Amino acid sequence: MFKRLMMVALLVIAPLSAATAADQTNPYKLMDEAAQKTFDRLKNEQPQIRANPDYLRTIVDQELLPYVQVKYAGALVLGQYYKSATPAQREAYFAAFREYLKQAYGQALAMYHGQTYQIAPEQPLGDKTIVPIRVTIIDPNGRPPVRLDFQWRKNSQTGNWQAYDMIAEGVSMITTKQNEWGTLLRTKGIDGLTAQLKSISQQKITLEEKK
């Protein structure tokens, strides 16, 4: 169930391209415009997507990853294993993690069937560096609404905000991946996880038929 919630949630996290980005210092504006741009692209490019579902990787690479804190999220997933990894191991892992996100997020976007969304009203940021933004996803086919909290983090150097995690039903996506990959990290280390991520990233994206 959580895996499905995570995939549905990713439908609204794909941010804007650099040329049309919203105010990078306001995570609420980023979330709002990102959702609108993403849904528009999914709707307008269905012919290309249906002809070649792996085209979704391109959308992810162009529109999402430049505005997601990939390395920060990847380091959180590694936890204690990050500090013990060599620079070469980290570089290989982050490259594999990025390719994994292209496949995983692309597969999530393949679930698009006309969903709509509501974003919580903007709250004062103050001096906060981590801000959760509640998004409610509404399914046109009558499924119950899904309420999610996207975690946005302020870059201490640039002042810009980027998304790095999502919490559904009190469970963090980062925590879920830590639990899912924990045994592999304990037995085969970061190299074993890197190899698995490379394998997963090679899987073809498949479209979910409308139910």
Results as ranks from 00 to 15, higher is better:
Met1Glu: 00
Met1Lys: 01
Phe2Ala: 01
Phe2Ile: 09
Lys3Gly: 01
Lys3Asn: 06
Lys3Gln: 04
Lys3Tyr: 05
Arg4Gln: 11
Arg4Asn: 06
Arg4Val: 13
Leu5Pro: 00
Met6Asn: 01
Met7Pro: 00
Val8Trp: 15
Ala9Ile: 13
Ala9Ser: 04
Leu10Ser: 03
Leu10Arg: 00
Leu10Phe: 09
Leu11Ile: 11
Val12Trp: 14
Val12Gly: 03
Ile13Pro: 00
Ala14Glu: 05
Ala14Val: 10
Ala14Cys: 09
Ser17Val: 13
Ala19Val: 07
Thr20Ile: 15
Ala21Leu: 07
Ala21Pro: 13
Ala21Ser: 10
Ala22Asp: 09
Ala22Asn: 09
Thr25Ser: 12
Thr25Trp: 13
Asn26Lys: 07
Asn26Phe: 10
Asn26Met: 14
Pro27Ile: 07
Pro27Met: 04
Pro27Phe: 04
Pro27Ala: 09
Tyr28Arg: 08
Tyr28Asp: 12
Leu30Arg: 14
Leu30Ser: 08
Met31Ser: 01
Met31Ala: 02
Asp32Ser: 09
Asp32Phe: 05
Glu33His: 05
Glu33Tyr: 04
Glu33Ile: 06
Ala34His: 04
Ala35Arg: 02
Gln36Tyr: 06
Lys37Arg: 14
Thr38Glu: 04
Thr38Gln: 04
Thr38Tyr: 14
Phe39Tyr: 02
Phe39His: 00
Phe39Ser: 02
Phe39Ile: 02
Arg41Gln: 04
Arg41Pro: 02
Leu42Arg: 02
Leu42Met: 15
Leu42Tyr: 10
Lys43Ser: 14
Glu45Ala: 09
Glu45Phe: 04
Gln46Ile: 06
Pro47Phe: 10
Ile49Leu: 15
Ile49Ala: 10
Ile49Thr: 14
Arg50Leu: 11
Ala51Phe: 09
Asn52Arg: 11
Pro53Arg: 10
Pro53Met: 08
Asp54Ser: 08
Asp54Val: 08
Leu56Gly: 07
Arg57Glu: 15
Thr58Leu: 08
Thr58Pro: 10
Ile59Leu: 09
Ile59Met: 09
Ile59Cys: 09
Ile59Thr: 06
Ile59Val: 11
Val60Gln: 03
Val60Arg: 00
Asp61Phe: 02
Gln62Asn: 12
Glu63Asn: 04
Glu63Leu: 00
Leu64Pro: 00
Leu64Tyr: 05
Leu65Val: 11
Leu65Cys: 06
Leu65Met: 15
Leu65Glu: 12
Tyr67Glu: 07
Val68Gly: 02
Gln69Pro: 05
Val70Arg: 03
Val70His: 13
Val70Tyr: 06
Lys71Met: 03
Lys71Ala: 03
Tyr72Phe: 04
Ala73Val: 03
Ala73Asn: 03
Gly74Lys: 00
Gly74Tyr: 01
Leu76Thr: 03
Leu78Asn: 05
Leu78Asp: 00
Gly79Ile: 01
Gly79Cys: 02
Gly79Ala: 04
Gln80Tyr: 10
Tyr81Thr: 08
Tyr81Pro: 03
Tyr82Phe: 08
Lys83Met: 05
Ser84Ala: 11
Ala85Thr: 08
Ala85Val: 05
Ala85Gln: 06
Thr86Met: 07
Pro87Gly: 07
Ala88Gln: 12
Ala88Trp: 10
Arg90Gly: 04
Arg90Asp: 05
Arg90Leu: 05
Glu91His: 05
Glu91Ala: 12
Glu91Ile: 08
Ala92Arg: 10
Ala92Pro: 06
Ala92Tyr: 06
Tyr93Thr: 04
Tyr93Cys: 06
Ala95Met: 09
Ala95Asp: 08
Ala95Gln: 07
Ala96Asn: 07
Ala96Tyr: 15
Phe97Asp: 05
Phe97Cys: 07
Arg98Met: 07
Glu99Trp: 06
Glu99Ala: 10
Glu99Met: 14
Glu99Ile: 14
Lys102His: 08
Lys102Gly: 14
Lys102Arg: 15
Gln103Cys: 15
Ala104Trp: 15
Tyr105Trp: 09
Gly106Val: 11
Gln107Ile: 14
Gln107Leu: 13
Leu109Phe: 15
Leu109Trp: 05
Ala110Cys: 15
Ala110Lys: 14
Met111Pro: 09
Met111Phe: 14
His113Pro: 05
Gly114Asn: 10
Gly114Pro: 04
Gln115Ile: 02
Gln115Ala: 02
Thr116Ala: 15
Tyr117Glu: 05
Gln118Lys: 10
Gln118Tyr: 11
Ile119Tyr: 10
Ile119Leu: 10
Ile119Thr: 13
Ala120Phe: 14
Ala120Val: 13
Glu122Ala: 14
Glu122Ser: 09
Glu122Arg: 10
Gln123Ser: 14
Gln123Leu: 12
Leu125Glu: 12
Gly126Trp: 13
Gly126Asp: 11
Gly126Pro: 06
Asp127Ile: 04
Asp127Lys: 03
Lys128Phe: 13
Thr129Lys: 15
Val131Ile: 11
Val131Trp: 07
Val131Lys: 10
Val131Pro: 00
Ile133Ala: 07
Ile133Glu: 03
Ile133Trp: 02
Val135Leu: 04
Val135Met: 04
Thr136Tyr: 14
Thr136Asn: 12
Thr136Ile: 05
Ile137Tyr: 14
Asp139His: 08
Pro140Asp: 15
Asn141Pro: 11
Asn141Cys: 08
Asn141Gly: 07
Asn141Ile: 07
Arg143Lys: 05
Pro144Lys: 08
Pro144Asp: 03
Val146Phe: 09
Val146Gln: 04
Val146Ser: 07
Arg147Leu: 04
Leu148Thr: 07
Leu148Asp: 02
Asp149Gln: 03
Phe150Tyr: 14
Phe150Ser: 09
Gln151Trp: 01
Trp152Pro: 00
Trp152Gln: 01
Arg153Trp: 01
Lys154Glu: 09
Asn155Cys: 01
Asn155Asp: 02
Asn155Pro: 01
Asn155Trp: 00
Ser156His: 03
Ser156Met: 03
Ser156Phe: 03
Ser156Tyr: 03
Gln157Cys: 05
Gln157Leu: 12
Gly159His: 09
Asn160Lys: 12
Asn160Val: 11
Gln162Ile: 02
Ala163Leu: 15
Ala163Ile: 06
Tyr164Asp: 01
Tyr164Ile: 07
Tyr164Gln: 06
Asp165Glu: 07
Ile167Asp: 01
Ile167Ala: 08
Ala168Phe: 14
Ala168Thr: 11
Glu169Ile: 04
Glu169Asp: 07
Glu169Ala: 03
Gly170Phe: 02
Gly170Ser: 02
Gly170Glu: 01
Ser172Cys: 05
Ser172Trp: 01
Met173Phe: 06
Met173Thr: 01
Ile174Gly: 10
Thr175Asp: 10
Thr175Tyr: 03
Lys177Tyr: 07
Gln178Trp: 00
Gln178Asp: 03
Asn179Gly: 13
Glu180Ser: 04
Trp181His: 15
Gly182Val: 11
Gly182Ala: 14
Thr183Met: 11
Thr183Val: 07
Leu184Pro: 09
Arg186Pro: 00
Arg186Ile: 03
Arg186Gln: 01
Thr187Ile: 14
Thr187Glu: 06
Thr187Cys: 10
Lys188Ile: 06
Lys188Met: 10
Gly189Cys: 04
Gly189Arg: 07
Gly189Val: 01
Ile190Arg: 03
Asp191Cys: 04
Asp191Thr: 07
Gly192Phe: 09
Thr194Gly: 07
Thr194Pro: 09
Thr194Tyr: 04
Ala195Ser: 09
Gln196Lys: 14
Leu197Tyr: 11
Ser199Lys: 15
Ser199Val: 14
Ile200Asp: 08
Ser201His: 14
Ser201Glu: 14
Gln202Phe: 05
Gln202Gly: 09
Gln203Trp: 09
Gln203Asp: 12
Lys204Pro: 12
Ile205Asn: 15
Ile205Lys: 03
Thr206His: 07
Leu207Thr: 15
Leu207Met: 14
Leu207Lys: 15
Glu209Ser: 14
Lys210Ile: 06
Lys210Ser: 09
Lys211Gln: 04
Lys211His: 13
Lys211Tyr: 11
Lys211Ala: 11
Lys211Cys: 05
